[in-house]
Design a protein around this nucleic acid. Sequence first.
DNA 1: ATGAAAGCGCTAACAC
DNA 2: GTGTTAGCGCTTTCAT
Lengths: 315, 315
Amino acid sequence: MTNINDIAKMAGVSVSTVSRVLNNYKYIAKDKRESVLKVIQEMNYTPNKNAIDLVRGETRTIGVILPYNNNPAFDQLLNGILNKALENDFSITVLPSNYSKEKEVEYLQKLKSKLYDGIIIASRANDWETIIPYSDYGSIVSCEYTNHKEIGCSYMDRYSSYLDAFRFLKNKGHQVVAFTTARLESNSTKQMIGAYNEIFGELQPEYHITGCSCLEDGYEVAGQFLLLPERPTAIYANGDEVAGGIYLYAKSQQLKIPTDLAIIGQENQPIGVGMGISTVDHQLMKVGEQACSLAIKKSREKVKIPYHIVERDSV
Amino acid sequence: MTNINDIAKMAGVSVSTVSRVLNNYKYIAKDKRESVLKVIQEMNYTPNKNAIDLVRGETRTIGVILPYNNNPAFDQLLNGILNKALENDFSITVLPSNYSKEKEVEYLQKLKSKLYDGIIIASRANDWETIIPYSDYGSIVSCEYTNHKEIGCSYMDRYSSYLDAFRFLKNKGHQVVAFTTARLESNSTKQMIGAYNEIFGELQPEYHITGCSCLEDGYEVAGQFLLLPERPTAIYANGDEVAGGIYLYAKSQQLKIPTDLAIIGQENQPIGVGMGISTVDHQLMKVGEQACSLAIKKSREKVKIPYHIVERDSV
DNA sequence: ATGAAAGCGCTAACAC
DNA sequence: GTGTTAGCGCTTTCAT
């Protein structure tokens, strides 16, 4: 592998001159620049990026901690991140965590080991207390709100959105409402339950099923909800694919939508437009874009992204 | 930032000893190892990965050239790649190309600049002739078949699958069949047209619409197809979301599916199971997994992944 | 078992 | 404008 020394020698100049032409330094004698360029061309030389990153102490790469990589919501987020990164000539490395605390720490260590200039946390398993110390080694941006001043945030106001969604159902006359969530231990599940309590009063546990992420889950869960002595007249699903599953099961039982059962999903995904399912659009792509911007700018701002309810025919 | 020299000094050993404990070298005096470990702990030291990569000449990172990052088919592929990478403790950097030749070359240069150990090309704009020279600098794996011996391939036999799909429609009694594709200039479009010609004879241009990728495209395209003097009785869509759009438009025109119009999609996506759309499943996740394996092993094998047709209610 | 020292390939401060 | 040189932080011979 030919390196900068070889080029210098062959062009009859010093390495610094080669380095200068490589970095488009202004004041170089025309002939020297040209002969360097010529040798570079001839030798088909490309500088070693690792060496550059080492000496510069930065990589123009951002790591994205993503619990699941086959989840449409996180895909939307990632999409936004990639758009912004591309725009700014940054690279994105995907770091699948599967909500493992150990994996997350491992990835944060990579920030410390100077592999990334920053890390975006789409969702996390660890406490902030264990994450925050790593903000010394690069910018850490969260896609969920936190008050900690060390952490930048690009987030949507989940709680209000849940409140709005439940209120929306209530205004449509629904009294018995059920909902699904992804992970019992997650923050958003807590907020969901809180919002439910605020709108409909104390949650009866059978009206909440967790562990849902795909269409099949929705299908199954619908079966359980509809078996309840007092069955729900509306279901708020944590994703349009789950909502789609619920829709299908309801149809299979000859229920009419929305008259017999109302359904509202989340994240405005293609399946939802396909099946005409109302949804709460948290604009995850924008959340991702903004998160990436913050990471690039090493900003610790807190940026709120607006959400909105998209009404279709399922409520 | 504390480095290996500091640790060595503080532990009263040489850098090589520190390096050895860092790399779990066997033969180190117990006390020395322990005191090094202790200092590392105290100083909260993490080795600089750039320095390691530089000296080792490898990064355990693979770049994935992906035309679009908001496309469900490529998401499936990426999903498989990430799974395999995680399993093997490799990192994945996503390289969005948008089918720009310049971008692709830029990414291949990064392979040459030692940023990645290998590159997976999900789909490409450049000729193989311009890509192949880069295989000197790391393994290049394609998700499309090519005969070039320098390139590893994890692929599905598109042509046969198209043939099978068209034959399937023909056997169901369809004579007038239309189809959609994503990009006119792509290889798969050429194969699609070839397969059509083989099964149904010379393609009338109005039965093929290109530039389709999402549900909305499908909806629009369906309108055009159904306006044709002799309208198709079946449509093969290049993706289940496109198929979903076609489905919706057909429904909006009071057409019965599959009697009035048969629809078959591709890639077995959630929307397809939701709407009951038959599909050609190319198992893109497996294609991705295999591609990643090849890249990691620096193998130039050609591995064919089987596809199958999933029959639902739309044909 | 351990240390000294020569790299890996590049940048940038300094001197001229 | 250009060259010399001291790093960046690590691995890995080669002695001992």
